[in-house]
Design a protein around this nucleic acid. Structure first.
Length: 586
RNA sequence: GCCCUCGUAGCGCAAUUGGACAGCGCAUCGGACUUCUAAUCCGGCGGUUGUGAGUUCGAGUCUCACCGGGGGCGCCA
């Protein structure tokens, strides 16, 4: 937003530096980091250090301060800036807040839900996330993946990318066979309950695994069942199709609740066959080694690349010829790039699979696909239970997603009910859901991807402090002011007398949104937005308690109303990137 | 053995990618509701950024070593 001013100033600074014998020095601009000070800033340490390195004697810090002071005294800041000053080697140039704040607010109100976004760029990127297994439960560990993938997709889209949201479903394999076998023998004819389909399916899975592990006989039976499947037994296939659909329908309902949609669903079953052909190709090219029947089909990446204990060995096919994850991930990657003309392919997968994905990308490269370098693993840490207990569906140490959402809604409902007794039940429920989902999502997104999240009910359901309800509430407060004027936001520029510090802080933050979006997109970190949204809400709450809006006079009132509307919009936009909705009332 | 990752206040986390006084939330102590919603605001307490060296004008951030937690490393997904 301020680039052209930076350029203007630089055009003045460069000749001054030239006089000092300093050329080709590029300045790095940032916003003044102090709360309540609004403007741009740069420093002269690099230039001074460069000078010292080229032989000139002197103290760098001293020289930087000298340069900053000299430039500050010579600079013509025009009417766009209030003042400029040199502080310890930094040059701070303060905006003329009155006109700049008008400009910022104006921009937000004009661009509305697009404020903060960047113009389209010619780049198509696929984000693969969620990747649930059919015939299994959904737990909070899976949620981190979904929420992260969805948010990163939103952020990339806001940055101008064309985003394809892809899901990759594990609909075949031993876990499915085990489930089917158990169902056919012990639950035939049963159907999942409408409400708790996922937990029902999950319970049956846990039961199936237990049966498999408790007797050799069962294990043997399951193995035979697997063979029958491999031989395309029509009855088993029919059962598979039917039960798979139960999972898919249940997933779809859950995604709907979470507000997630996918543009493309990939299934393991659709890439297994072609995957085996790829393995053959790798063997023929002399890249993979077929050690069957004694061993598996492997690719010794370290031997091929001349590296040592870096890429290790990847197993492509079991010794019995059945497929593994690697068998399927290779053709899947190819399919993705063929179907869409991708510029980038992002895999949202937990950090434990870092080596595995590194191997897959390298194999693709060895196969000659130039786009292999555009595959990127977005790793995130797992969600644990207190005491470093891993969530595992077979151990029974899971917190089911449905339970979490239900409990969060219940708690949110209690507060909504108390605060808004006049509302109808349906409205209350809708609000409670937004708050519940917001809290859950925010608690997962406001943590760096590299940090393990320890799940406990209290923290997950805490709505105090830095949490989504705080931010939502700020927007609701803004909304409630706007409602009082029937959402008639006065147009045109107003010219209030000097701005309050609270107002400047708020406008400053609003103006930073586009660059926060950019940063979040660059680093694939929703955390950046999560922090930003909180800071913005905090600044607004501060403003709210100190600066009356409706009772203010004339131009102050006009400006503040516009500022309130701009804040509400920016909060909505930033939370939107996190997949969090904002209610009108709460 | 090799590799990845984390270590910041009692607890949970940030820190504009190497910049200005290391911020915020819980918790705790104390203030503020006849005024636009108190799911709010203001103030107090709390720090040798795991340890030691190095690079740099400048290090929580980069390099190396060490300590401690977690993870990965040929037929699990």
């Amino acid at each position: 937003m301020f680039d052209r001013y930076k350029i203007q100033i630089e055009e003045q600074i460069n000749p001054i530096l030239k006089q000092e014998g300093l050329e080709n020095s590029t300045l790095q601009w940032s916003l003044i980091p102090f709360s309540g000070h609004w403007g741009i800033s740069t420093s002269f340490f690099q230039i001074a250090a460069q000078e010292t390195r080229s032989g000139k004697k002197g103290n760098v810090a001293h020289r930087a301060a000298e340069l900053a002071e000299m430039i500050a005294s010579k600079l013509d800041i025009g009417t766009e800036f209030e003042k400029c000053e040199a502080v310890k080697g930094y040059l701070n140039i303060y905006f003329a807040s009155k006109s700049f704040s008008q400009m910022v607010v104006e921009k937000v109100l004009e661009e509305k839900q697009l404020y903060g976004s960047h113009p389209p760029i010619d780049e198509t990127v696929m984000v693969e996330f969620s990747q649930p297994n059919t015939h299994k439960a959904f737990h909070v560990g899976h949620l981190r993946n979904i929420v992260l993938g969805a948010s990163v997709s939103n952020i990339l889209e806001f940055n101008g990318n064309t985003v394809i949201r892809a899901n990759y479903l594990g609909d075949i394999g031993l876990h499915v066979i085990t489930w089917l076998w158990n169902y056919e023998n012990f639950h035939e004819g049963e159907t999942p309950p409408a409400e708790n389909a996922i937990s029902w399916i999950g319970e049956l899975y846990a039961e199936a695994v237990k049966r498999r592990e408790e007797s050799e006989e069962n294990e043997e039976a399951i193995r035979r069942y697997f063979q029958a499947w491999d031989n395309h037994d029509p009855e088993i296939i029919a059962l598979w199709k039917e039960t798979r659909q139960w999972s898919l329908d249940a997933f779809e309902r859950l995604y709907e609740i979470l507000g997630i949609h996918f543009d493309r669903l990939y299934f393991e079953s659709e890439v297994e066959h072609v995957g085996k052909a790829f393995v053959e190709e790798l063997i023929e090219k002399g890249l993979a080694k077929d050690e069957r029947p004694g061993g598996a089909v492997i690719i010794d990446l370290d031997a091929l690349l001349g590296t040592k204990e870096e890429y290790r060995v990847l197993v492509l096919l079991r010794s019995d010829g059945t497929s593994l994850y690697a068998t399927k991930d290779i053709p899947l990657a190819v399919k993705k790039f063929e179907e869409y003309k991708l510029d980038r392919s992002i895999y949202v997968v937990d950090v434990r699979q870092s080596l595995y994905l590194k191997q897959i990308f390298k194999v693709l490269e060895l196969l000659g696909y130039e786009w292999a370098k555009q595959c990127q693993h977005l790793a995130y840490e797992i969600v644990n239970l207190p005491g470093n207990v891993t969530l595992a569906s077979r151990e029974g140490t899971v917190v089911l997603l449905e339970d979490l959402i239900r409990e969060a809604e219940k708690r949110a409902m209690e507060i909504v009910d108390k605060k808004n007794p006049e509302l109808g039940l349906e409205d209350k429920q809708q609000i409670a859901r937004m708050i519940a989902l917001g809290s859950i999502k925010y608690s997962l997104l406001s943590r760096d991807n590299t940090k393990i999240v320890t799940f406990d009910w209290e923290t997950a359901l805490d709505v105090n402090g830095q949490a989504a309800p705080y931010i939502q509430y700020a927007a609701v407060r803004a909304n409630s002011i706007l409602r009082k004027v029937q959402y008639q936001i006065p147009s045109g520029w107003s010219n209030p007398s000097d701005l309050e510090e609270k107002e400047i802080v708020l406008v400053d933050l609003i103006s930073r949104f586009p660059q926060e979006v950019e940063k979040a997109g660059r680093d694939l970190k929703p955390l950046v937005i999560a922090n930003y949204a909180y800071d913005l809400a905090k600044a607004f709450n501060d403003f709210y308690t100190h600066c009356p809006v409706l009772s203010a006079k004339d131009e102050v009132r006009t400006f503040r109303l516009r500022l309130v509307a701009a804040t509400k919009q920016t909060i909505i936009n930033s939370l939107g990137l996190l997949g969090i909705q904002v209610p009108e009332i709460m």
